[in-house]
């Protein structure tokens, strides 16, 4: 089977996966054309005909999602926030899975003491509460998108590493791995030419799943006020909404970013889950 058909073949069979992909593609398009879609500068304050600031105006034709306390256009903020969410989600997921896959490969392949040390580190990291750790890290290192991504990477590589290691343990028993060793292949070659291609499908699952974690963490940190000050992320919209005590008055300010976060996280989860059915041999056998 060709790799691409294997990669996307599941969509035909699995409606949930197909829905996930559609949502994801929708957000990607929004992010790509964000400057064209958003009618205003998200930071611009709007005034009505009388020259008064348009504080928390409900949705209208001029302002699809209404305005904020400071008279800013919510729709433009949500559209521009898509870029940040996808950037954080994808970048952190790719880094997490890249690191996790490599560590899992090394631990599983070498085994013995190396495996022991790595897996004990994984155990310790499993013991660290994620959000408090991220909060402290961002508090110490200063708010900013890059620090948030670093916090996510430092903690969540553990999941990927553990799963990949388990997979490597079974694959390295295969006779063709031994055959490669007898041919004189180096450890590096065996790991990356013979074992890695078999775990990459599983890594892709974890990219999809980690994307949700990344977006959620960024939103949480921003909501708690540790987001990057100059960046219009979805979490920050919620933070400002909460800060102006407008949560129960201006639903149009709170609900759009909330739904956007939920949908994007959900899409990653749906795609990951249905792709896992294809990639994970244990699930496939059922």
């Amino acid at each position: 089977m060709k790799f691409s058909t294997k990669l996307f073949g599941f969509i035909k069979k699995d409606t949930a996966g197909a829905i996930g992909i559609c949502i994801f593609i929708f957000f990607v398009i929004v992010a790509l054309f964000a400057p064209l879609i958003s009618p205003y500068d998200p930071g611009a304050m709007h005034f009505d005909e009388t020259g008064a600031l348009m504080r928390i105006h409900p949705p209208s034709f001029q302002h699809l999602f209404g305005t904020t306390w400071m008279g800013r256009d919510v729709f433009s903020q949500v559209v521009m926030g898509t870029r940040i969410a996808l950037f954080v989600g994808i970048l952190s997921a790719v880094c997490v899975v890249f690191i996790g896959t490599n560590i899992g490969l090394i631990a599983g392949y070498y085994g013995g003491r190396i495996d022991n040390i790595i897996m004990r580190i994984v155990d310790i990291i499993y013991g660290i509460p994620f959000l408090p750790f991220a909060l402290i890290l961002v508090a110490v290192m200063g708010p900013g998108i890059s620090n948030i991504i670093i916090a996510i990477i430092l903690i969540t590589w553990r999941n990927t590493a553990r799963v990949i290691r388990a997979q490597v343990l079974t694959i390295k028993q295969r006779a063709y791995v031994e055959a490669a060793r007898i041919s004189g292949a180096s450890n590096f070659r065996i790991m990356y030419k013979h074992i890695a291609p078999n775990v990459i499908p599983l890594s892709l699952v974890y990219i999809a799943l980690s994307m949700g974690t990344g977006i959620m963490t960024e939103a949480s940190l921003s909501f708690l006020g540790y987001g990057a000050p100059e960046v219009p992320s979805w979490g920050k919209i919620l933070f400002e909404c909460y800060n102006s005590q407008a949560m129960f008055i201006a639903w149009w300010w709170m609900i759009p970013p909330g739904i956007a976060i939920t949908l994007l996280v959900l899409s990653g989860f749906l795609v990951g889950r249905s792709y896992e059915e294809v990639a994970n041999p244990r699930l496939r056998e059922r």
């Binding site: 295969r174 006779a175 063709y176 031994e178 055959a179 490669a180 007898i182």
Partner: peptide
């Protein structure tokens, strides 16, 4: 030194 394995379904990647 080289080897031929039992199971040709397993020994070829």
């Amino acid at each position: 030194a080289q080897m031929v394995f039992q199971d040709p379904y397993e020994s070829l990647n």
